[in-house]
């Protein structure tokens, strides 16, 4: 083996170990709940916990709602910017990057101040209002990823010509987005969706301060009171996140079918 290749492998092995060893250690620790040997009891305990099921389902529902709301905002916006207002692109990109710059804690304090029970729009006064606020907060949090994913998808198709072709055949703007543009960027949209889901599943700050029992808050509670279950939860959380990433890779394989070929 050439020295350069050897070095590449060594660096790769070091990087992989840096990520994998702590994970393996956590996984190994999560199996040691009993003195007599390795068992999956910590996982059984987590899965049978009603609070796990409730918080996980709640996070999943909020995540799906955030994805749908995000798509309804981002797809038409990115489409419009690309088609009619390319000069606005730098401004839109800057706005979509803000959630990365502004910490979640600032965002949530802003929400609490803006939407408390004595404000003109007292969303925090009801459970449904708080759920809506949490969903919209996640839409904002996922905006950088969702916008970039959709914009990348739009870049792979000739948006203007496809729009004009559909338009002259009688389609209106809504039909064009739904029937022509959206199906052609579905792979990019789904990767944005899975990224959003991964963010929502692990989010703690906003949900905690809005007093919502999401998966992140449940993990924190369990972590404060138990020994082995938090390790099991960390592994479960990783599997979910990596599962979402894996889905993005899997979906990318379907891309060539809809790719433009000249």
């Amino acid at each position: 083996m050439k020295p350069a290749k050897l070095w590449s492998w060594l660096i790769f092995a070091f990087g992989a170990a840096y990520f994998i060893v702590p994970l393996l250690a956590t996984f190994e620790f999560s199996l040691r709940i009993r003195r007599e040997g390795y068992t999956f009891d910590a996982y059984t305990s987590v899965f049978s916990d009603g609070r796990f099921q409730a918080s996980f389902s709640y996070s999943l529902i909020v995540g799906v709602c955030a994805i749908l709301a995000g798509l309804l905002i981002v797809v038409p916006a990115a489409y419009y910017v690309r088609l009619r207002a390319p000069h606005l692109r730098p401004i839109i990109e800057f706005i979509t990057l803000l959630p990365l710059v502004i910490p979640a804690i600032i965002l949530v304090f802003g929400y609490i101040r803006m939407y408390n029970t004595s404000s003109p729009l007292p969303l925090l006064g009801t459970n449904l209002g708080t759920d809506i606020l949490l969903t919209l907060a996640y839409v904002a949090l996922a905006l950088p990823y969702m916008y970039r994913a959709v914009d990348t998808g739009l870049r792979t198709i000739d948006v203007q010509t496809l729009t004009e072709a559909a338009n002259i055949l009688g389609a209106n703007q809504a039909t064009i987005i739904a029937k022509v543009i959206f199906p052609n960027i579905i792979v990019a949209v789904l990767s944005g969706a899975f990224l959003t889901l991964a963010i929502v599943i692990g989010e703690f700050t906003i949900a905690s301060l809005l007093n919502r029992q999401v998966f992140g808050v449940y993990m924190q509670n369990v972590g404060a009171n138990r020994a082995f279950e938090p390790a099991a939860l960390a592994v479960i959380s990783f599997v979910i996140t990596w599962g979402a990433m894996g889905m993005i890779q899997l979906l990318a394989r379907f891309a060539p079918k809809t790719a433009r070929r000249d």
Partner: peptide, 12 residues
């Protein structure tokens, strides 16, 4: 009806 230089067939 219009035909475009870049075909503009809907890829999906």
């Amino acid at each position: 009806g219009m035909v475009f230089q870049a075909y503009a067939l809907f890829p999906n």
